[in-house]
């Protein structure tokens, strides 16, 4: 992962968009953000420095600023010099509150960037956690293709040459949307959420053997692509192996593990003449049904069992 510095809060490619304004302490912009965590420095300001998480991002809300306001100059001098004796990462003031002159002097001297945010504290923290969690999320790069099929994020995997890209192309042609071809960056945003996206340079390009590399967005238009999609099922495409037994019922739910998250998984055998895109569409719709609690295979099974118990006994 790239080294993340405080500078990313205000500039650079891959800028962390928290809508912050740098107010002071420009000299500290190259400090590295090691943890995606925050600290409310209320206790530290009150003089309690045990467990002071100085290397986290300090968030000053109305409570902190009100406390600072009622301090006398001497008290401020003492509090701030203690506070700034730590190697602070940066401070963010919410409600666009501009800290007092003495605080800013300390920040400049110690090279601690001071940012202002227009948002209220809770709103800002919500946004911050959302944005930062994604940056610090565990990630893996998979050799697969990700398509949004009827709103279901379908990850197509399989050996090279099995026809992932061709299948994706056919799905796009049928009105579905491509997220990434051949290389999918998967992030674990949450314990149950996997987000897939393409790499920045390859974005929405697809390689079709015989044609070469084509730009899907340019050819099929903006509606044929999307930038990211939650991965909700995995479909493994493999060459038809007549010796292998494929699932005929769909009664058992198989799971595929990505970054320790279990994703529903099916294997689709590929054979000339088999319409793979239609099969994938059906699988995606079936997955949606399962999600709302309708399992076609299981319901049919129940029906048959009931029939056997009643009619079959006559």
């Amino acid at each position: 992962m790239r080294k993340l510095t405080v500078r990313y809060f205000i500039e650079g490619e891959g800028r962390i968009d928290l809508q912050l304004r740098l107010y002071a302490g420009e000299g500290g912009l190259d400090k590295e953000i090691k943890y995606g965590e925050i600290n409310r420095p209320g206790l530290a300001l009150a003089g309690f420095f045990d467990y002071f998480a100085y290397d986290r991002i300090q968030i000053f809300g109305q409570g902190e600023t009100a406390f600072m306001n009622q301090l006398s100059y001497e008290q401020k001098m003492k509090t701030y010099s203690d506070f700034f004796s730590y190697d602070l990462l940066c401070c963010i003031f919410t409600h666009d509150y501009v800290p007092d002159k003495l605080f800013l002097e300390f920040a400049e001297k110690k090279n601690v960037p001071i940012f202002l945010s227009k948002r209220g504290t809770t709103r800002f923290i919500t946004l911050f956690v959302h944005v930062i969690d994604e940056i610090f999320a565990e990630q893996v790069t998979l050799h697969a293709t990700l398509v949004d099929v009827f709103g279901v994020g379908v990850l197509l995997t399989g050996k090279s040459g099995v026809g992932k890209s061709e299948t994706a192309l056919e799905l796009i042609e049928r009105g579905h949307r491509l997220v990434a071809d051949d290389m999918v960056i998967v992030k674990k945003i949450d314990e149950s959420l996997l987000m897939g996206a393409g790499s920045e340079i390859l974005k929405h390009h697809i390689e079709i053997r015989g044609i070469g590399i084509v730009n899907v967005r340019e050819i099929f238009g903006i509606r044929s692509v999307r930038n990211r999609k939650r991965i909700e099922m995995v479909i493994l495409l493999e060459e038809w192996d007549s010796a292998k037994e494929y699932d005929r019922l769909g009664l058992d739910d198989k799971k595929y593990s990505i970054l320790d998250i279990e994703v529903p998984y099916i294997t689709v055998p590929v054979r000339p003449g088999r319409n793979i895109p239609v099969i994938i569409e059906t699988a995606a719709l079936n997955q949606r049904l399962k999600k709302i609690g309708i399992n076609s295979a299981r319901e049919l099974d129940e029906k048959i069992k009931k029939w056997i118990m009643t009619e079959g006994q006559k």
Binding site: H143, S160, D182, S199, H205, E207
Partner: peptide, 16 residues
């Protein structure tokens, strides 16, 4: 530590 399939041109290009 990013892996790319050397049989896929998109993967190889994606490594930048």
């Amino acid at each position: 530590s990013v892996e790319a399939d050397a049989k896929s041109i998109m993967s190889v290009l994606g490594l930048a």
